[in-house]
Design a protein around this nucleic acid. Structure first.
Lengths: 340, 340
DNA sequence: TTGTAGGCGTTATCAG
DNA sequence: CTGATAACGCCTACAA
């Protein structure tokens, strides 16, 4: 006698398979009394439904959509590749993944695309985009139709997503702070913080964490105002030249967002010996680590991000729980020596 | 027209389901010609077997055994707990996990237990133990009977295991080296290395990696001979007292193996301000990190270790491939700020 | 409101 | 050697 099956509970409750199935899937057309009787049997026998058998029977295909930024940076490319890889390799079976590239700046376009989604043909959505009122509405609409939505990489704290698949960016910023502070040996001086834009929540959170750690643990180091590059390498180089010229005591640079390549190249054109801490283990960052051009990379495993998003969406579809520890995305510290 | 099924290939090859099944599972009693015909059809149609349906039909239950050290340390306890947790929570379904605790010193006992395993009732084994000739033989015997075996946490490089689930300990030692070197700010002086015993391969590898990095990147720091404690806190304290007394220029301590608690307490009784780098994120290490009593922990995710071992054993049973990236165990650097 | 019969993709047990 | 046929645990018409 193995685990109890629908047959067992049908017999125990004195009803047929079909009825059991109906209460199992909360379908209408069953008297309250019967429902209660079946529920009781389920509980008493400790029945646990075999999801794989169910999926086989209904030939289930999970259709999940990933909304990803279309930008040219290596990190975004890595992310897109990870999604493509998961889709192709069939890590998660019975799952079809479709990717939709969206422009981060096109606030309306992405909301429109989301709204255009047919809830009948999509079982879940993972989305990486800046939070806007339009996006919030679109997400609320989807969820109202029973489609689970997870925030991917970038949190959407006010959009009522089912889950956030990503790291705590305040903690990531704190981690960067400790690395910069200790790798520069607490030498009194200044550090520069560079980012694309401080408009985004992620950047803000990281900057917040970074500042907090610097203030509480490295008071001898002054953190200069953030340099916002808006993705322009020329501008970045010019700003850096100016700041590094003005402050000879600068010991390190913390790059909050993407754009590692531009930063490294710009810095190297001006001064050597600075401690460089950046985010995201892109091919360039990896090579730079090996070549000792940067000191540390704070990153998140993109493969893990994608698999986690898929597992969570699927669990939501099936009404099953997830293993929290498995879904916690780690803030990884990558040095030259522990490069994966 | 979805994916091709056995029916499709049966029709294409002009044979019955049963015959298809026979060649699929490489069962005897099929003419070479027929086998070839079926194989051709399989290839042409791009058939991929639905493992879940197969498991349903044969009511498969994977029975995996974990051989774990019974020692009292927190790391070993954490490991045992992770295995128990995976078994209980059913992360991997249709899988029964049985744990066998073995004494690391009882070389014969563990080989005997392995040999006593009934290959008919065990589908795979994960084993963490020091490599000995007896163990090698027992593993070879098991594998000869078709039972997949993976080395768990400790590598068994000469035992012909199907896989090693764990980290590269040379790289882990190198990582420790960089952290010690940089966190002590390359101050000229000495660092102490402590371990239970240098007999174990893991310890040796870590020491090797540590020494290599210190020599090539931090020549101004002298690495003192390894202190072997053999698990005796008293002895450790005595040794440390002697060494720290003799070398006032010591700036840091690297603890290669387990025994973090004893080390931290011993060091604190003698001198403050040392940089401490240890392995394994146990409850004690976590608290010590928060309390700023240690500087960095190099660790591996125990939950990941267990799930990976289970996935790999299962894949071996099914003759299926694994996703390399998912099974790569990371060398994690944990600071106070990125504590999971 | 409830039950019966058949099917999902695979395997296993019989005969032939 | 090969082929029907009935499972496995669940879902879904269609009937009653």
């Amino acid at each position: 006698m193995g685990k109890p099956t629908v047959h067992d509970i049908a017999r125990a409750a004195g009803v047929s398979l079909a009825t059991v199935d109906r209460v199992l899937n909360e379908r209408p057309g069953v008297r309250e009394v019967t429902v209660a009787r079946v529920r009781a049997a389920i509980r008493e026998l400790g029945y646990i439904r075999d999801v794989t058998a169910a999926n086989l029977a209904r030939q289930r295909q999970y259709r999940f959509a990933f909304f990803l930024p279309e930008g040219p940076g290596q990190f975004h490319a890595t992310l897109r590749e990870a999604v493509a890889e998961a889709a192709r390799s069939g890590v998660i079976d019975r799952t079809a993944v479709l990717t939709r590239l969206v422009s981060e700046s096109d606030v309306h376009g992405i909301a429109r695309d989301l709204a255009a989604l047919d809830p009948g043909s999509i079982d879940g959505v993972a989305i990486m985009a800046p939070e806007t009122p339009q996006l919030r509405d679109a997400i609320a609409h989807l969820r109202a139709q029973g489609v689970p939505v997870v925030a991917f990489v970038s949190d959407l704290p006010n959009s009522g997503c089912d889950h956030f698949v990503g790291i705590n960016n305040v903690a990531a910023g704190r981690t960067a702070g400790v690395l910069v502070g200790r790798f520069t040996c607490r030498r009194p001086g200044q550090v520069v913080v560079v980012t694309n834009t401080l408009q985004s929540r992620d950047s803000l959170d990281r900057r917040l964490g970074f500042d907090a750690v610097m203030a509480e643990s490295f008071p001898e180091i002054e953190v200069l105002p953030t340099l916002e590059t808006h993705g322009d390498p020329e501008k970045l180089a010019a700003m850096l030249r100016r700041v590094l010229g003005r402050w000879p005591g600068i010991t390190g640079v913390y790059s909050i967002a993407t754009g590692t390549q531009a930063l490294v190249q710009a810095v190297e054109g001006i001064r050597t010996g600075l401690t460089l801490v950046v985010h995201e283990l892109t091919p360039f960052a990896r090579a730079a680590l090996v070549g000792r051009r940067i000191d540390a990379v704070i990153t998140q495993d993109v493969g893990h991000l994608v698999r986690s998003a898929l597992r969570i969406l699927r669990a939501r579809c099936d009404g099953m729980p997830t293993v929290a520890a498995q879904e916690r995305i780690r803030i990884e510290v990558v040095l030259r020596e522990n490069l994966p």
